[in-house]
Design a binder for these strands. Structure first.
Lengths: 110, 110
DNA sequence: ATTATTAATCGTATATTTGCGATGAACTAA
DNA sequence: TTAGTTCATCGCAAATATACGATTAATAAT
């Protein structure tokens, strides 16, 4: 993308929050996270049984979640067990919690 | 096993959370929200002074934030004052808070 | 009226995302 | 070995997102 103007700079928190939000910005990824987090750790195969999407598409979304750090994969041949990454999950919880709680305080006179 | 594609259904919460996350999925929108929420309500013009992006681009991002419901606009000719929409902001706070707190409880044995 | 200011919208170019089927890689079981 | 299972990756097409400059609309001030 063309960037002829001076580049915008972002704080670490802004980038981290946007990155986490991007991982959550597709409903099927929210659904996958709920399945992984709420019930138990899942294998990819179980996800394809629950979500009517091509296996390759689900694998792509899992990769996006892996890249965000919100989940981790554990090889258990021939399957792969995906789990919530507790550390990053809690970091995301803090980031979003702080973002929403600190925003729009008494100074915002709308 | 072949299955019928393109018929994934999502709950209201899944769609709402993904929609809010999408609004937060670009760092400049996070920055705009922080400016609107943290300091004071801003006019668009003040944003263009702080963020080195074309006015049309910032206007596009503001429109995305408007569509998400996280902000609202108040016409104050010839300017437009954008503010956090408290109601939807708090809804987003609850949605994200619940999502992260309910996920990955004791059942998740990773 | 004319001019200035402000912000939305239009048109365009490019980048990214999304989804699928096909294929490949790694491992197991026979 | 051969065949089967599981999941990642490739290649492609379509949709969406991003960013810009130019233009338009609305209003205020002169």
């Amino acid at each position: 993308m063309q960037r002829t103007l001076s580049d915008v700079t972002y704080s670490d928190d802004e980038q981290a929050l946007a990155g986490m939000a991007k991982a959550l910005s597709h409903p099927v990824r929210v659904k996958i996270l709920r399945l992984l987090a709420g019930e138990s750790c899942c294998f990819t195969g179980e996800l394809t049984e629950v979500i009517p999407m091509a296996q390759s598409t689900i694998s792509q979304h899992l990769k996006a979640l892996l890249d965000s750090g919100l989940i981790q994969g554990e090889i258990d041949p021939p399957k792969v067990k995906y789990c919530i990454n507790r550390q990053n999950w809690e970091r995301a919880e803090r980031l979003f919690g702080f973002f929403f709680s600190e925003g729009c305080k008494e100074r915002c006179n709308c």
